[in-house]
């Protein structure tokens, strides 16, 4: 049993009650917030290890709250949403969430997602730093410099980049990337990869529309390579 601290953000009192009992019964410490504003307050005071964030809240919405949290913290965020549409999922991931769960959900599924989000892959094999003219990645210190400027990556983004660089030059299949970064329960959620790869490209590529480091392998997955000088890279999807 872990003793990670989870912040529940939902405006519905009954849902908070269920989550409180459920998480407590699974050994987590629980903090609650009734709104986005309260959540931002709680994060400062309680420093939770993970946030369960409801998308549909009056006042500051879940998506706004998520973006706001992301400006200051890398804490894993799982969004709770009622709409099971591709657009809503992508919006949640775009806002900076690591994962989402569609209401109504079973507890096993939620617990699996929480475990996956909390899982920090221990650097089993240490990867040597990646150095090029405009990109420097130090996996020991977890720092990324683009043209000398430090860039902030979320843990999931960093983990994804690590997987890609560790297999430099090789095409990484969607399923393999998902399982390596999110955990063994994943494999079909290609929209996760699309959103996170896009975010990574925005952060590390000199021209995100014309990526040179992270290229798309149609139907297969993604590939990280050292840019060939003078040769234009593949188009992004």
């Amino acid at each position: 049993m872990t003793s990670a601290k989870v912040l529940i953000v939902d405006d519905e009192p009954q849902i908070r009650r269920v989550l409180r009992t459920t998480l407590a019964s699974h050994g987590y410490t629980v903090v609650e917030a009734r709104s986005g504003d309260e959540a931002l307050e709680e994060i400062r005071h309680e420093r939770p290890d993970l946030i369960l964030l409801d998308v549909n809240m009056p006042g500051r919405s879940g998506l706004e709250t998520c973006s706001e949290i992301r400006t200051a913290s890398d804490v894993p965020i799982i969004m709770l949403t009622v709409r099971n549409s591709e657009r809503d999922k992508v919006q949640a991931l775009d806002a900076g969430a690591d994962d989402y769960v569609v209401k109504p959900f079973g507890v096993e599924e939620l617990m699996a997602r929480i475990r996956a989000a909390l899982r920090r892959v221990a650097p089993a094999e240490s990867i040597p730093p990646f150095l090029s003219a405009d990109l420097k990645i130090d996996f020991e210190k977890r720092t990324v410099l683009v043209k000398g400027q430090p860039v902030r990556l979320t843990p999931k983004e960093f983990e994804l980049l690590r997987q890609l660089v560790a297999n430099q030059g090789k095409a990484m299949a969607h399923r393999r990337l998902l399982q390596a970064v999110w955990g063994p329960d994943y494999g079909e959620e290609t929209e996760y990869l699309r959103v996170f790869i896009n975010q990574l490209r925005k952060k590390i590529e000199p021209d995100p529309r014309n990526p040179r480091y992270i290229t798309t392998e149609p139907w297969i997955g993604y590939r990280f390579e050292r840019p060939h000088s003078g040769k234009s890279a593949n188009k992004s999807d």
Binding site: Q14, V18, T22, V82, K103, F105, V107, E108
Partner: peptide, 18 residues
């Protein structure tokens, strides 16, 4: 409708699995 259903489903699955 989803809100009470969510509470019920989470409670029931917790009771069943834990």
């Amino acid at each position: 409708l989803r809100t009470p259903l969510t509470s019920i489903k989470a409670s029931v699955t917790n009771l069943l699995s834990n």
